[in-house]
Structure formats: C-alpha cells, structure tokens
C-alpha cells in the first residue's frame, strides 16, 4: 500500500514538473491563475452589464452562474488532466508503453495524473469564488460548519469526474488525431449539461435525461448549497443519495469498461501507436 501511495505521489510530482518546468514558479503561478480569474471577471461583467442595461438584478442568478463556472473549473481541470495523459504520454513524450510496464494499473495511473490538476483546480476555483463574491456581493463561504461537507464533496467530485475522464481517455487511446478533440468536446458537453450556468430544467426536455446520467448535476447543486446554505436546490437528502449512487455506479462501470479497453488496447497494440506529430 505504501508503495502504491509513493507511486501515486511521484506521478503527482511529475505532473507538477510537466506543467511548471517551462518557466519560473512566479510566472507559472500567474499563468495558472490568470485564465480562471479573467473568466470569472468576464462572467461577472456580463452579469453587471445585463443588470445595468435591463435594470433587473438577480444576485441569486449571479451566484448560480459564478459558483457554476468556479466549480466547473475544478471538475474540468482534473478531467482534462486525466484525458490529456494518453495524448501527451503516447504522442509527445513516447513514454506510455514504459509507464504501462512500470505502473501496476493504467487506470490508477491516469487517475493519479489528474490529481495535480484537481489540486490546481481547487486553488483557482477558490480564487474564482472569492473574486465572484467581491464582484457580485452575494454571500458565499459564510460558515465554517459546511466545510466538512464541502471537503467530502470535493473528494467525491474527484471520484466520479476522474473516472469519467478515464472513460474518455480510454476512447482517446484509439485515436491519436482526435484525442485532444474528444477531450475538449467532452468538457464542453459537461459544461452544457452539468447545471453550470443554468439549471437542468432550463434545457430542452429531450436532452434533460442525458444531463441526469452524470453525477455532475447533484454534485453542483450540493456544492452550491454548502457554499451558501440559503440556496436550497431541492431535497438535499435525495441529492446526496443520487450523487452517491451515481458515483458508485460510475466507478464500477469505469472499472469494468477499462478492463475491456486494456484488453482491446493490447489486442490492437494501440499503446505504442503514434499517429500524430
């Protein structure tokens, strides 16, 4: 077990090096924070501009939007980190086959590669929430009592989203050219369906069942609730139940799916296939 933890930690270290080694630490930190901070500033400004022009203000809607993009930043960062691994290791660094031989489980390796991105996502999302709160003036993180629930939800968020990332990474193994496109497209799909900017009920009825396949909706709504307990998205107990059930189902389904992928990958020799660069 200790050996496995060491392996996971060194993978996190590698990801940090891979992400940051091109420049000095201060420049890397500025680079890391600048995009999410400007993103929240942009959405905040859109809200302020619309409120100014229409004369209608809705701090609740603003909270929904700002918390949505901040939380999606956390999920999206990790997801992207997991999915991108196949492309970068096979096409760019040419290390995938050697990693496959050295690390005992490819699924765990991919998840470990995402961990650093979740950590960065957490820091930048926090910055986004604070900036959003300053811009919009809506109360957030008002009570320390909700912190354990938030911490638990953050872990659950890693559990389901990293496994969804593993599913998409499994798909991208079969396409070197389209791997990055698959990764971007899937992030876009979650952004669209995952209660990020608007509730699922605002989507066309025919697409709403698709949104409920993923645990993202329950996760987003519960996170919003614990960030601001006056926000009540519905039956909190019911949301928890569905979140846990869907998370468990995602983990089990991904495990079974990835065993199949691994076998197919060995059958087709795709671990070494390099179709790009």
């Amino acid at each position: 077990m200790l050996g496995l933890i060491r392996r996971v930690l060194v993978v996190v270290w590698l990801t940090f090096k891979e992400q940051s080694n091109w420049t000095s630490l201060p420049v890397y930190l500025i680079y890391t924070f600048i995009n999410p901070v400007f993103q929240v500033a942009l959405y905040g400004y859109i809200y302020i501009a619309v409120a100014h022009l229409s004369g209608i203000t809705s701090p609740e809607a603003a909270f929904y939007m700002v918390s949505g993009i901040a939380l999606f930043n956390y999920i999206g960062s990790g997801l992207y980190g997991v999915i991108w691994t196949i492309h970068s290791e096979r096409e760019h660094f040419r290390t995938l086959k050697y990693t496959y031989l050295a690390f005992p489980d490819l699924q765990l390796y991919l998840t470990s590669r995402g961990l650093y991105h979740y950590l960065v996502g957490l820091a930048t999302s926090l910055a986004m929430l604070i900036l959003g709160m300053l811009l919009i003036g809506y109360p957030m993180l008002g009570s320390l009592d909700t912190l354990p629930s938030i911490a638990l939800l953050l872990l659950i968020g890693i559990a389901w989203s990293s496994q969804i990332g593993v599913v998409v990474a499994g798909l991208s193994i079969y396409s070197s050219e389209y791997g990055p496109v698959i990764s971007e497209s899937f992030g876009g799909l979650l952004f669209l369906l995952g209660a990020v900017l608007y509730p699922v009920s605002a989507l066309p009825p025919w697409i709403q069942p698709l949104a409920h396949i993923f645990p993202m909706v329950e996760w987003m709504e519960l996170m919003r609730h614990y960030l601001n307990p006056s926000y009540i998205p519905g039956d909190i107990g019911g949301l928890w139940t569905w979140l846990l059930v869907k998370t468990l189902a995602t983990i089990i389904a991904t495990y079974l799916y990835f065993r199949l992928v691994e076998r197919l990958v060995r059958k087709t020799g795709m671990l070494e296939a390099s179709l790009h660069h």
Partner: peptide, 9 residues
C-alpha cells in the same frame, strides 16, 4: 531509435 522520456526533466 526512440527518444522516450520527459525532455523538460
């Protein structure tokens, strides 16, 4: 005939 590894390290 390969250059496998993390060039930045």
């Amino acid at each position: 005939g390969e250059r496998p590894g993390y060039g930045i390290l």
